[in-house]
Simulated assay, not measured.
Amino acid sequence: MANANQGIDTRLIHAGEPEKRICGAVSLPVFQSSTFAYAGHPGYDELKYIRMNNTPNHEVLHRKLAALENTEAALVTASGMAAISTTLLALFSPGDHILVQNCLYGGTQDFIVSDFVPLGFQFDFIDAEDPSSWAARLKPNTRGLYVETITNPLLRVGDLKALAEFAAANGLIAMIDNTFATPVNFRPAEWGYDICLHSCTKYLNGHSDIVAGAVAGKGHLLKKIAHKLIHLGGSLDPHACFLLHRGMKTLALRVRHQNRSALAIAETLAAHPAVARVNYPGLPGRPGYDRARELLEGFGGMVSFELKGGLAAAERFMQRVKIPIVAPSLGGVETLVTRPATTSHAGMSARERQAAGITDSLIRLSVGIEDTRDLRQDFEQALNG
């Protein structure tokens, strides 16, 4: 059993595991049972049942995730959007107002604008890099703050320390999507955030074979979210729990390689005459670079960029690369390229994308664990063609 003083590599392997191995099995078995014998559980939420998200496969993940993020509690969900939507619906009531970063994952933004608001909730966008502008957006009914550690797809890092302090000073629940950074590179609770969210489909699982989400944070808030999740039915299947559990054990190895490889590729792209702009928090001179260095232990495996030839050049590049797969999603062992305007942010209108700085020609790159030299050579031949 791991403890809080051990490194994250050790906690990934041992945190949350049964103290006595089940029948001696080194790997936790899949408990593919919807129903468990009644054992005097004190309340409805404690009944053992897959929808209650409390089978042995769930509980090991909950303990492991809490240990990784240094939070009081954690839970897994059926998808990243299940984690996000359930959290917002559990913690806020119609009439409440939240502050939202002005460039989010398209699914999150679409949920807030298209689903959250019609239910009676309110929001205002804020510039996470401009602390002087936040107070003007406060209202008497403001209850929460929602941001991303590294934004999707422009890879901006807001003033995360100041955001958490602002939320605390104004009695707001501070929520942050930590998918792009992972707990290897950033642990929001250590900076004052109340709730940390993940699409486990991405880096935490890392193998492009499940859809899952997670919420970690303060215990009293997690109780509310867990209860709402039971009613909404967004529980994770035990076999998906097993795959996520297995994938997480290599998280630190994968992410550290992806950190190094993405930085090298971003440098290659930035030096190429065909490239107009590269978005990567680890590039010196980029807006927010000093802040990213202070906050992050690694800059992540995501890069986005634009070519001087616009949309035609972007499509030609994606046709010419040989190693990456042209596909949505991210965070797996294989390198993926996509245009966010057609995938992750397709749910936003063209006007909304333009306002957020997401052009039709923007290319988003999820760096895998292939040989960095091979990827750089492949990108160079695609750009030179």
Results as ranks from 00 to 15, higher is better:
residue 357 G to H: 02
residue 43 G to C: 13
residue 333 V to S: 12
residue 136 A to K: 11
residue 158 G to F: 04
residue 56 P to W: 11
residue 36 F to E: 03
residue 378 D to S: 07
residue 346 A to K: 13
residue 11 R to H: 02
residue 301 G to K: 01
residue 41 H to K: 04
residue 315 E to V: 01
residue 80 G to Q: 07
residue 82 A to C: 12
residue 72 E to R: 04
residue 29 P to A: 05
residue 87 T to K: 01
residue 334 E to K: 15
residue 346 A to G: 04
residue 26 V to F: 14
residue 94 P to S: 10
residue 106 G to H: 03
residue 132 S to W: 12
residue 332 G to C: 15
residue 259 N to Y: 07
residue 365 L to T: 01
residue 28 L to K: 00
residue 324 P to E: 05
residue 72 E to C: 02
residue 131 P to E: 03
residue 263 L to T: 00
residue 122 Q to C: 10
residue 165 E to Q: 14
residue 167 A to N: 01
residue 382 A to V: 09
residue 241 C to G: 08
residue 218 K to W: 10
residue 96 D to M: 13
residue 329 S to V: 14
residue 86 T to D: 06
residue 52 M to W: 08
residue 107 G to W: 06
residue 85 S to H: 06
residue 355 A to Q: 14
residue 102 N to Y: 10
residue 345 H to D: 11
residue 362 L to G: 07
residue 3 N to T: 12
residue 381 Q to A: 14
residue 303 V to K: 03
residue 112 I to H: 03
residue 190 E to N: 07
residue 213 G to C: 08
residue 358 I to G: 10
residue 310 G to L: 13
residue 110 D to P: 00
residue 84 I to K: 00
residue 99 L to E: 07
residue 297 E to Y: 11
residue 193 Y to C: 03
residue 369 I to P: 03
residue 119 L to P: 00
residue 370 E to A: 11
residue 74 A to W: 01
residue 186 F to C: 06
residue 276 A to R: 08
residue 195 I to Q: 10
residue 30 V to P: 01
residue 377 Q to I: 01
residue 258 Q to W: 09
residue 114 S to D: 12
residue 140 P to W: 10
residue 301 G to Q: 04
residue 266 A to P: 02
residue 126 I to T: 00
residue 65 L to W: 02
residue 184 V to H: 08
residue 234 G to N: 11
residue 339 R to I: 12
residue 89 L to V: 00
residue 312 A to D: 15
residue 113 V to D: 05
residue 167 A to W: 02
residue 53 N to L: 09
residue 258 Q to Y: 10
residue 101 Q to S: 14
residue 15 A to S: 14
residue 91 L to C: 07
residue 212 A to R: 03
residue 142 T to A: 12
residue 378 D to T: 14
residue 16 G to F: 05
residue 104 L to G: 08
residue 17 E to Y: 10
residue 313 A to Y: 05
residue 156 R to L: 08
residue 237 D to H: 12
residue 301 G to R: 01
residue 103 C to E: 10
residue 332 G to A: 15
residue 101 Q to P: 00
residue 258 Q to K: 15
residue 91 L to N: 07
residue 284 P to F: 14
residue 122 Q to T: 01
residue 27 S to G: 04
residue 61 L to G: 09
residue 119 L to F: 06
residue 384 N to E: 15
residue 128 A to E: 09
residue 373 R to G: 06
residue 145 L to Q: 04
residue 127 D to I: 00
residue 129 E to W: 07
residue 176 I to C: 07
residue 124 D to R: 04
residue 365 L to Q: 02
residue 272 H to Q: 05
residue 99 L to K: 09
residue 326 V to Y: 04
residue 296 L to S: 05
residue 288 G to P: 09
residue 67 A to P: 05
residue 84 I to N: 02
residue 98 I to N: 06
residue 117 V to P: 03
